[in-house]
Write a protein that binds this DNA or RNA. Structure first.
Lengths: 227, 227
DNA sequence: GCTTGATGTTAACAGTGATTACTTGGAGGT
DNA sequence: ACCTCCAAGTAATCACTGTTAACATCAAGC
């Protein structure tokens, strides 16, 4: 994201007086204030004018850096997906068992969601913005899912009956499970502290899921589902 | 929901002229138009004024029937949760195996979500309304989860090691799985037709999950998660 | 038949996203 | 050293939103 950030900052030559006519780094300042307001009030309550006020500029100044309010939010969401993807990639490439990495991936995913819950909500549709209208965001979103998909494939590689379709289903199920858990926590439908804390809850749910993935019973179940 | 609907409609005495000064059944007309616009444009784009226009009434008339826009949306969401809960209850009380009923519950749940996707988004936080500020909605929401919880408890009742905590975790995992799948379908992150259709996808995911729930492996997994 | 209260309407306020036309001032070529 | 150009700021304005206050209407009950 942040496509046009110049390699070397051409402004802010004088270092002292921050309040020139030209702001110096308004784009990033706007993003920072928007992120703060996003996490405080939620995506629906973020106002471009309020962001501009917080940055100390006129209400139309943001339009020199973002085509629209949606464009600003898309930048934040896209950065979020890239951040998530990078974090997941590191875990996926670690040395542990595939099963262990799956649990770690799940913990990391849910942790990402609960650390910046409003951003997570934004990333998954809460502002009513369709990322298909913002291709870089759509790409980053898809990319954030590939580490899980890879590790699932690896986890099921040693199995008989391990068709590609089965790995695909298992990957979708895992994503759905972790995403659903994140959503229920983020919108406060579930309260982690009533379930022994996030660590214990995510651990219990994921260990059960991953163990089930490899079991004889789940193979029978998956086979039965085809009919 | 819809608390104050009179037992017998006291107006619309003359049946012909629909355009009296008093609308006759404005409350329900507003709800109907709101539902239509909700499903067409999403919760974020629903405007109380547009709803009023659609009903052919002044923009402040809705305030005689709803305290605020959020109140109108809360009514729709609450009705949605009641509808979902009723449908789930019927399946939970059917004659099939607990395992079979779990799959049917999942199908029903995902079907509910994908039939009226924008309403489902509204019910789960899109629109930025916190149902804790609308107690009847919060109750209806909690109630829509109990059928699954009951059947999970029943499913695990025959097991050794079947502590209440384990059933609780399994219920949460199941809810998260089905809710996550619904969300991914509803916000078009996933496309059911690329996965063999919704029926096949939900079937595959749920059969695998339910089979895993009862397996030896999942018991080992759940035990391991405690550490 | 008069009063009353629920159900409408009109007018207004503050806040929003966005567009247009303007000003400013720093960077680079001559 | 100057001068031009254009990215990055501003002010004014439009259409729209949620919400409130004050006023109008009409059906029903005493």
């Amino acid at each position: 994201m942040s496509p046009r950030s110049p390699a070397i900052a051409p402004r802010r030559a004088r270092d002292a007086d921050a309040r020139a006519y030209h702001h110096g780094d308004l784009r990033n300042a706007l993003l920072a204030h928007a992120r703060t307001m996003l996490e405080r009030d939620g995506p629906e309550a973020v106002s471009l004018r309020a962001v501009a006020r917080a940055a100390g500029v006129s209400q139309t100044a943001p339009y020199k850096h973002f085509a629209s309010k949606d464009d600003l939010l898309a930048t934040i969401a896209g950065d979020g997906f890239l951040e998530l993807a990078a974090s997941q990639r590191v875990i996926a490439d670690a040395q542990d068992t595939a099963a262990e990495r799956l649990v770690l991936l799940g913990r990391d995913y849910v942790g990402f969601a609960t650390t910046t819950p409003q951003r997570y909500r934004l990333m998954f549709g809460a502002g009513g913005i369709d990322w298909r209208a913002h291709p870089p965001v759509a790409e980053a979103k898809a990319g954030s899912f590939t580490p899980v998909k890879d590790v699932i494939a690896e986890h099921l590689a040693g199995e008989r009956l391990a068709s590609g379709a089965r790995a695909e289903v298992a990957a979708i199920a895992t994503w759905a499970l972790v995403h659903g858990l994140s959503m229920l926590l983020v919108d406060r439908t579930l309260h982690a502290d009533e379930q022994g804390g996030e660590h214990a809850l995510v651990g219990a749910v994921l260990e059960e899921h991953v163990a089930g993935l490899g079991s004889q019973a789940s193979r029978r179940g998956a086979a039965a589902a085809v009919r």
